[in-house]
Design a protein around this nucleic acid. Structure first.
Length: 568
RNA sequence: GCACCUGUAGCUCAACUGGAUAGAGCAGCGGACUUCUAAUCCGCAGGUUGUAGGUUCGAGUCCUACCGGGUGCGCCA
């Protein structure tokens, strides 16, 4: 972390760590402060057990001695048993956090690395369903977090636009495709005939042959009927996906589906062969991985000579490395594909590359229904657009009820409904599976996105009604804001949450911090009247506080991809 | 069978590198709107952290075994 980015509480933590390192005679980076669970114990704490041994007295004595001798500006240290607790002076706390959060770029850093984020990656000709929500929303949020920390971010949508399933789709189209239905509901129709294919394939063996032939024709690279159909299906699908992306606030720098690497596959296979890692197994080409502790090999080519998923991902990875020399390449893909990523990374390791471990699979748990798993083949899917529509519909009813005079109910309903869905997804641990529950997703009260949005809207409302603009933070008397330490602590931990969320690839950490900030904000403006106190200076200070709160919520929601309406 | 993930309040989930009295929300009960939006706030109640051992000053967190749930395991992606 660069020192320039020491915003909020991190700034105080840095001072404390330096003082502690000096007092204990150790390196600063060996001092890890923790945040006490109980707020009576201050903002930071150092358990002294570990250091007591080397110093030669017991932890409680060490804590006590340090409490007496340590001198950190605006921080008081006190020993409670073996714990050394630090409390920041309330005025200094308010001044520092107000100053940082009240200005643009709160929590920004300048990490200056190139990070590739591959996310969303839906399959052409299939609807985006609730399963795609996770990859899309988590990936988009992580991309924004890295961007905020100063990374150069390359967002890639690795569309599933290639592979033998397109042979099946083409075979299905030739039998059951209807032009009119394709025009009216492209993805719906393509899904329908794809499902039909799987219904018929067992009792009609000729289908399989037709599918294989179709894919070979497609893979030939010639401008034949198969390719023209494939291009059309792709374009129709992308147009539908874009509608979802617009609603979710997801964007991409590169739209590179698997097909984009199509002409790099032969070179990839040759490269692997040149490295001497490819061998023949029952007619298929494989890379054996037993030396890497993986029992199942990486399949490069089928015995029919067609390429496979792994081949395309290998080619994609190498192509990206050659083009970008990334510091990391993150794949936001479901945990069920862990083995696949382990395999193709191991294959690259066997090839002697020095960048194989810069590839990182960021898995997430799949979405399940109470009745069971989603299945495209069985036609059991819940379209993402339907989830969003229902959320917006309900949000619209609630706006109608709570704020009948709202000037633009349609817009705010969209913001609140979609925001609720996004926030709900991001507020759960990435790696755990999610059981989809309408009641929960459509909940707008408690620890939800709309409740954070509401706090933001309330701040906007206060600022709107004030007779003047919020003063610049350095023009207010911070002592007047020293009576709201909970607010400043919550806002002050925002930068740390952003960094931690990025480092752990876990947006939930930021989502939860926003809930704490919103909660502290609600208490603040309930207990501390802002307007009409008759005290000019106090009103100015509190306006500045509300403005800093508003800015932080807006920034945080923005990083997560949740809209922040100014009135709701 | 093997591998990975997972198990915390009635429900959905937190708990930073092992740290102090395991915390929120929902549901339940009781309060607070003549005052900047009650999508809010305050209070009560709710727990043998799946089970049994182990490691140590200290374990929801680490190790072992077992139980339950999920996912994956060569020509699908």
């Amino acid at each position: 972390m660069s020192d320039a980015s020491l915003h909020g509480l991190d700034a105080f933590a840095a001072l404390i760590r330096v003082a502690l390192a000096e007092a204990l005679g150790v390196e600063v980076n060996t001092i890890q402060l923790e945040r006490p669970k109980n707020e009576e114990h201050g903002e930071f704490a150092l358990p002294c057990f570990r250091f007591a041994n080397s110093v030669g007295n017991n932890p409680a004595q060490l804590a006590s001695a340090l409490a007496d001798s340590l001198d950190v500006n605006n921080v008081s240290a006190s020993a409670v048993g073996p714990f050394l607790n630090f409390q920041i002076d309330r005025t200094a706390l308010a001044r520092k956090v107000l100053g940082d959060a009240g200005a643009p770029g709160y929590g920004r850093a300048d990490d200056n690395e190139l990070s590739i984020i591959e996310y969303s990656s839906p399959n052409i000709a299939k609807p985006m369903h609730v399963g795609h929500l996770r990859s899309t929303v988590i990936g988009a949020a992580m991309a924004r977090l890295f961007d905020h920390l100063g990374h150069e971010v390359v967002r890639i949508n690795h569309l599933g636009d290639w592979g033998s399933q397109f042979g099946k789709l083409l075979a299905a189209w030739k039998r059951w495709g209807k032009e009119v239905e394709l025009e009216t509901d492209p993805i719906g129709h393509l899904l329908k005939i794809y499902v039909e294919y799987h219904n018929q394939e067992e009792c009609d063996p000729s289908l399989d042959a037709e599918a294989k032939a179709s894919f070979l024709a497609l893979e030939s690279g010639e401008n034949n009927e198969e390719r023209r159909l494939w291009v059309r299906f792709t374009e129709l699908s992308l147009a539908e996906f874009q509608k979802i992306y617009d609603r979710l606030g997801a964007s991409f720098d590169l739209l590179r589906g698997e097909s984009w690497y199509e002409d790099k596959l032969d070179a990839m296979v040759e490269w692997l062969e040149r490295k001497g890692v490819v061998e023949d197994s029952d007619g298929a080409q494989i890379v054996d991985l037993t030396s890497e502790g993986i029992k199942t090999p990486c399949l490069i080519k089928t015995s029919h000579g067609t390429t496979l998923y792994a081949t395309r991902d290998l080619a994609a990875a190498k192509s990206r490395w050659d083009e970008f020399h990334f510091a990391r390449c993150l794949y936001f893909v479901g945990s069920e594909q862990k083995l696949h990523f382990d395999q193709f990374k191991a294959a690259l390791k066997r090839c002697g590359t020095d960048w194989w471990d810069k590839l990182e699979h960021v898995p997430f748990g799949l979405v399940r229904f109470p009745e069971g798993k989603l299945s495209t083949r069985a036609g059991r899917v819940l379209r993402l657009s339907e989830v969003l529509d229902r959320a917006v519909e309900l949000a619209r009813e609630i706006v109608e009820e709570k704020n009948p005079d709202h000037p633009d109910k349609d817009t705010v309903a969209e913001q609140v409904g979609v925001g609720a869905v996004i926030f709900h997804d991001l507020s759960h641990a990435r790696n755990k599976e999610v059981v989809f529950d309408w009641k929960e997703v459509l909940s707008f009260e408690g620890d939800t996105g709309p409740s954070v949005q509401y706090t933001h809207a309330r701040c906007c409302s206060i600022l709107r009604r004030a007779a003047r603009a919020a003063p610049n933070p350095n023009e207010v008397d911070s002592a007047l804001l020293a009576d709201a330490p909970e607010l400043w602590i919550a806002i002050g931990r925002f930068p740390g949450s952003v960094r931690e969320a990025a480092e752990k690839r876990e947006p939930m950490i930021l989502a939860h911090q926003l809930l704490r900030i919103a909660s502290a904000g609600n208490v603040f403006y309930r207990e501390k009247r802002v307007l009409g106190t008759g005290n000019e200076k106090l009103e100015g200070a509190r306006l500045a506080a509300v403005d800093a709160l508003r800015r932080t919520l807006s920034l945080g929601l923005g990083l997560l991809g949740v809209p922040a309406p100014t009135e709701m």
